[in-house]
Each structure stands twice: as C-alpha cells, then as structure tokens.
C-alpha cells in the first residue's frame, strides 16, 4: 500500500507542471467566467479620467460632495450617462427637484432611470430593496440612515454588486435644507466645484459653457487625489 501511494505522489509531482498548464488552458473554456463588465462599470468622459483605470467597481460606495452651486448634480449625471451604464438600471432616491431634461441632454438613458422622490422614514429599507435590481442607487438625502443601517447597506452593496452613490451638499441655500451626514467610509469621494462660466455679459447672451472641476480621492489608490476640469 505504502509503495502504491508513493508512486502516486511521485507521479503527481512529476505531472504537476504539465497538469497545471493544461488546466490553465482548460479553465478558459470551463471555468465560470466573470466578465469585466460584470465587475465594473466602464466610465467615459470626465470621470474616466479621474477614476483608476477609467472604471468603477460594482459594489462600491461613492460620495459626491460639494456646497450649493458646486455642480454636484452634473457630476452625478456624468456617472449615469457613462458608457457602462448603457444596459444598467439606476434608481434616484430623494431627488426632489431634479431637472430630468438636463439629464436627458447629457445623454442619460431616462428609460432606465427610476425616481423615488420621497422615500420617507424607511429610506434604508427602500435603498436595500432597490439594490437587488439596480446597478446604481443614488441617494440625495441620507439623513435618516443610522450608522448600523449604513453598515448593513454597504455589505449588501458588496454582495448585490450595486453602486451606492451618496450625494451630499453641505447646505442648500435655495431650500435652506441641510443634508445629513451619512458615514465616513467611502470607497471613492468625488468633490466638485464650478470654476467658471462663459457666454454671459451684463445683460446679454446666455450661458454657453460652464467649467466643472472634479477631484477624486480614493482609498483604493492610497488616498491620492486626482483632479480634472471639464466644460459642461
């Protein structure tokens, strides 16, 4: 018996390299394939230039932050209109005054965007349900989520492969609402601001172009900040 098992193990060791090679070849055919598109949303435009490898991993939590007049809504449109969102559904939770016409003009496929403007007190539950079906769940007023609920949501995002996008404005001067803080651990933090305009002169013309500055901080790239300014 002993000799038999010895032969086996010798054979095994002898074959190891060859077997490994052929398994490697085989795995291309038989292994369950996870395509890149099932793990990432490919970005384009401005966000592609600041996100590492031009894509954002499904299951991550992204914070969009800025004061009022910071172009934060436009930054969200940049995400929703990116190429990788083409066949994906997104949900907007708590966006009360969104200008869908602007989103449409930016190239967002409105047929795949569902809006829940007044989620009420059960915000966390609403977001959890939406994550089962939507690739991106954007939340505009996360004030009603406690930190334990937030932790649950993050682990759900990881398992259901949805991106949570939290949009946070420090104080909205136009509605006098301050947006609640949610949590401190984001995978990506996008800060936006508007750095200039063109097209207007005192009493003439119209706004032809605005310049949107986006900067990305991420735990995944060692906290380095990458910035870009784009015309919108």
């Amino acid at each position: 018996m002993a000799s038999y098992s010895n032969i086996c193990s010798i054979n095994y060791m002898y074959m190891n390299a060859a077997v490994e090679r052929s398994i490697g070849n085989l795995s291309g055919f038989v292994a369950p394939q996870l395509l890149a598109s099932e793990r990432y949303v490919e970005l384009d435009g401005s966000l592609a230039k600041i996100f590492p490898l031009g894509r954002v991993q499904l299951g991550s939590v992204v914070l969009f932050q800025g004061a009022s007049n910071s172009g934060v809504t436009s930054a969200v449109f940049e995400l929703l209109s990116s190429g990788g969102m083409q066949k994906r559904w997104s949900a907007l939770v708590g966006f009360e005054n969104l200008g869908f016409l602007a989103a449409f003009e930016k190239g967002v496929d409105l047929a795949k965007v569902v809006s829940v403007p007044n989620p009420g007190r059960d915000l966390a539950q609403v977001v959890a349900v939406l994550m089962e079906a939507f690739s991106v769940v954007a939340i505009a007023n996360p004030g009603f989520i406690s930190s334990s609920q937030a932790r649950n949501l993050i682990s759900r995002a990881r398992s259901s492969k949805s991106i949570i996008a939290v949009v946070q404005q420090s104080l909205n001067m136009y509605t006098a609402q301050s947006k609640g803080l949610w949590l401190s651990s984001y995978d990506y933090v996008i800060s936006s601001s508007i750095s200039g305009f063109s097209g207007l002169s005192k009493g003439g013309g119209f706004i032809k172009e605005r310049r949107l500055s986006l900067s990305l901080g991420s735990r995944r790239v060692g906290g380095a900040v990458k910035s870009i300014t784009v015309p919108i």
């Binding site: 809504t73 436009s74 009360e96 005054n97 200008g99 016409l101 003009e105 136009y174 509605t175």
Partner: peptide
C-alpha cells in the same frame, strides 16, 4: 425655448 443647456435642478 431657452437657449443653451437645461438646468440640472428645477425647483418645484
């Protein structure tokens, strides 16, 4: 119709 792009927030 207004010229240029549309506002991203429409207050109501």
């Amino acid at each position: 119709k207004l010229l240029g792009s549309s506002p991203a927030i429409c207050f109501d």
